[in-house]
Simulated scan of single mutants.
Amino acid sequence: MNEQTESVREAGFTDHVLVCTNARESEYAACAEGDADAVADAVRSWLRERDVFWSRVYVAETGCLGLCSAEGAAVAVHPRGRWFTEVTPAEVPDLMVDVFGPDATDLGRTADELPAQSG
Rank of each mutant, 00 (worst) to 15 (best):
Met1Gln: 09
Met1Cys: 06
Glu3Leu: 07
Glu6Lys: 15
Ser7Ala: 12
Val8Ile: 15
Val8Thr: 13
Val8Pro: 02
Glu10Ser: 08
Glu10Tyr: 02
Gly12Cys: 09
Thr14Met: 09
Asp15Ile: 01
His16Cys: 10
His16Ala: 15
Leu18Gly: 15
Leu18Ala: 11
Leu18Trp: 01
Val19Trp: 06
Val19Met: 13
Cys20Ile: 06
Cys20Leu: 14
Cys20Phe: 06
Thr21Asp: 03
Asn22Ile: 11
Ala23Leu: 11
Arg24Tyr: 00
Arg24Ser: 09
Ser26Ala: 01
Glu27Ala: 07
Tyr28Trp: 08
Ala30Ile: 07
Glu33Val: 02
Gly34Gln: 14
Asp37Glu: 11
Asp41Ala: 10
Ala42Thr: 10
Val43Asp: 11
Arg44Asn: 05
Ser45Phe: 00
Glu49Gly: 04
Glu49His: 00
Arg50Ala: 14
Arg50Val: 00
Asp51Asn: 11
Val52Tyr: 03
Val52Ser: 11
Phe53Ser: 09
Trp54Arg: 08
Val57Phe: 05
Val57Ile: 11
Val57Ser: 14
Tyr58Ser: 09
Val59Met: 00
Val59Gly: 11
Leu65Arg: 10
Gly66Trp: 13
Gly66Phe: 14
Leu67Pro: 00
Ser69Val: 08
Ala70Met: 08
Gly72Ser: 13
Val75Ala: 13
Ala76Lys: 10
Val77Ile: 15
His78Gly: 13
His78Trp: 07
Arg80His: 11
Gly81His: 10
Gly81Asp: 12
Gly81Leu: 09
Arg82Ala: 05
Trp83Ile: 15
Trp83Lys: 12
Val87Thr: 14
Thr88Cys: 05
Thr88Ser: 09
Thr88Ala: 05
Ala90Met: 03
Glu91Asn: 06
Asp94His: 07
Leu95Lys: 04
Leu95Trp: 00
Met96Asn: 02
Met96Thr: 08
Met96Ile: 01
Asp98Val: 02
Val99His: 00
Val99Arg: 09
Val99Met: 03
Val99Thr: 12
Gly101Asp: 15
Pro102Leu: 05
Pro102Phe: 02
Ala104Cys: 14
Ala104Ile: 00
Ala104Asp: 02
Thr105Lys: 09
Thr105Asn: 12
Thr105Gln: 15
Thr105Cys: 02
Thr105Trp: 01
Asp106Asn: 08
Leu107Asp: 04
Gly108Leu: 12
Arg109Gln: 14
Arg109His: 13
Thr110Trp: 00
Thr110Ser: 15
Glu113Met: 12
Leu114Glu: 14
Leu114Phe: 01
Pro115Ala: 10
Pro115Met: 09
Gly119Arg: 07
Gly119Ala: 13
